[in-house]
Computed example of a mutant assay.
Amino acid sequence: MTLPPRDPDEILRARGADTRPAARFEPYRTEREHDGWDIPAEPSLLRTEVTHERGRSIISRNRSPDIPFDRSVNPYRGCEHGCIYCFARPSHAYLGLSPGLDFETKITAKPNAAELLAAQIGRPGYAVAPIAFGTNTDPYQPVESQLGIMRGCLQVLHDWNHPLSLVTRGATVMRDLDLLGAMAGRGQVAAGVSITTLDAALARQLEPRAPAPATRLRMIRALAGAGVPVRVMVAPVIPVLTEPELERIMQAAREAGATAASMIPLRLPLEVAPLFRDWLERHHPGKAAHVMARVQAMRGGRDNDPRFGTRMRGEGIEADLLRQRFRLARKRLGLAGGVEALDCSRFAPPPRTGDQLALF
């Protein structure tokens, strides 16, 4: 896939992608051509646009054998964090938008998510099981601090005694420690905080609008202090660039209060592969060939291996050595224990005005 040239009339500030490759379902491609007029355009800063979508349902179901949950909620489409490696970028193609700059600048928010959530879990016959948040895009990306959609969803689950898990790298999660702490006291929540690197400069390149590594360690500390069990998610592990930090990241997270750890090697599905290759050539041209050679060594000689069973693990000597390092570090640091099963036994509708109070 050849990426189109960068739009010279756009000023990019803290963006992961550099261009807008067409969505894979689009029948047309655009090319820039000189029109013969030498009238200079005034460059403008590319800003984030947020549109609202009022859906009819909010819980997504899946049967993937690689995923440890069967239902999830995503309050947002797209993610302003702009992580260049994000596996969710291709999902923007379903909206007719580019997985490149559009993914991180054209965000869709779902303001009635909490209302839909309450309606769905309140249906007769609903079978309770933990709902996963942050499985596609981050529920605590920057716009959440103004819209509070994730906060509304948390309030619903808190009131219904419904368990949840969440994955984030957004500092706004600390705003919700009151609800998360209360649910943790009932064994109804577990959190994962993603840390890719401890190098602040590298993090600004990889994840331009996500909190700095030091802030993410502070998030782990705050969540653990509120009683929330926290897993450090060293994901993705990028050969050459972040892979040497694997043990240091786990050590820092353990010191901050994490009690478990997980790891996923870099995977580059669909449009993510050319976007990541372009990013490498812009930021680390001297390491680009080495990085991709190591990636392909774990992916059967390709940029990506989408098969169930291997897509989250990789295969071959490189992947085996990485897993061995991870297992040894996890054991040494006491991060080998899994998070306890979340309590589903208390699930019930919240009391309403006029309801008779229980005696016991």
Rank of each mutant, 00 (worst) to 15 (best):
L12E: 05
R15L: 15
A22Q: 09
A23R: 00
R24I: 10
T30V: 13
G36Y: 05
I39P: 02
A41C: 13
A41H: 14
S44Y: 08
L46M: 09
G55M: 10
S57M: 06
R63G: 04
S64P: 03
S64A: 09
P65W: 08
F69A: 09
D70L: 12
D70C: 08
R71N: 11
V73A: 07
G82L: 10
I84E: 02
F87T: 11
R89I: 07
L97K: 10
F103P: 02
E104R: 07
A109V: 01
K110L: 05
A114P: 03
Q120R: 04
G122T: 11
R123K: 15
V128E: 02
I131S: 01
I131Y: 00
N136L: 15
T137K: 03
G148T: 12
Q155F: 01
L157S: 04
L157E: 03
T172Y: 01
V173E: 03
D176V: 13
L177I: 06
L179V: 13
R186K: 14
V189E: 06
T196K: 13
R204P: 00
Q205G: 15
E207M: 09
R209K: 12
P211Q: 12
L223G: 06
V228I: 08
V228D: 01
V232A: 10
M233P: 01
P236K: 05
L241Y: 05
E245Q: 14
M250D: 03
E255I: 08
A260D: 05
M263Q: 10
I264Y: 07
L270E: 08
E271M: 14
V272R: 01
A273N: 03
F276H: 08
F276P: 10
F276I: 12
K287Y: 03
A288D: 08
V295C: 02
M298Y: 05
R299Y: 06
P306A: 04
R307L: 13
R313K: 14
R323I: 00
Q324K: 13
R325S: 07
L328H: 09
R330N: 07
K331D: 15
A336V: 10
G337C: 09
R352T: 06
T353K: 08
F360P: 10
